[in-house]
């Protein structure tokens, strides 16, 4: 099966990678310090060639953040979900992957804008939708006294 094949290649490529094949799409979990390195391998390895990052988004879990990337290989037809945890909730930071997939540039800007995770080495890390000095609305502790109605 394709998923097992992919899991095998991944296990060979990065020993000790956390692989979860119980879902519809194969999932791997990277440590936040190997995030960029893993992304580079996924994109450049001839057996994988994940060239299409179709989604990148982050989740606030109150004590830590998760950043999840959805990858496709348009050449070989594989799909993969890569996730990582950003442990520092006060000053979250992650390596950028915008040098590997251009589209990550803007999706990372969105994450920075709405969740406040700063991406190191990002070429153009500015707020995308909101003004500077605005809070990070997708964080769970975001408060807006005017527009929020507490139920």
């Amino acid at each position: 099966m394709e998923k097992e094949q992919l899991a095998q290649i991944l296990a060979e490529l990065v020993p000790g990678l956390e692989i979860n094949s119980s879902k519809e799409i194969l999932e791997v979990k990277a440590a936040s310090n190997t995030w960029h390195e893993l992304a580079g391998k996924l994109a450049s390895d001839p057996r994988l060639q994940f060239n299409y990052l179709h989604n990148l988004y982050g989740v606030d879990w109150q004590t830590y953040f998760t950043v999840i990337a959805y990858l496709d290989s348009t050449i070989l037809g594989y799909s993969l979900i890569v996730r990582t945890e950003v442990a520092d909730h006060d000053n979250p930071s992650l390596d950028t992957i915008s040098d590997i997939w251009i589209t990550a540039n803007f999706q990372e800007r969105e994450i920075y804008d709405l969740l406040g995770i700063s991406f190191s080495n990002h070429p153009d890390l500015r707020r995308l939708f909101l003004e500077d000095g605005w809070g990070f609305p997708l964080r769970k502790d975001y408060k807006d006294d005017i527009n929020f109605i507490e139920r």
Partner: peptide
């Protein structure tokens, strides 16, 4: 283009996190 809907649920009646990968977002840049 491709619209992706990503739901993270904690079993509540509303999603914990909902993300839309909208086609125009990528197309604009």
């Amino acid at each position: 283009g491709e619209l992706g809907v990503y739901i993270i649920s904690t079993g509540e009646k509303n999603p914990y996190r909902m993300h839309f990968r909208t086609p125009n977002f990528s197309n604009l840049f």
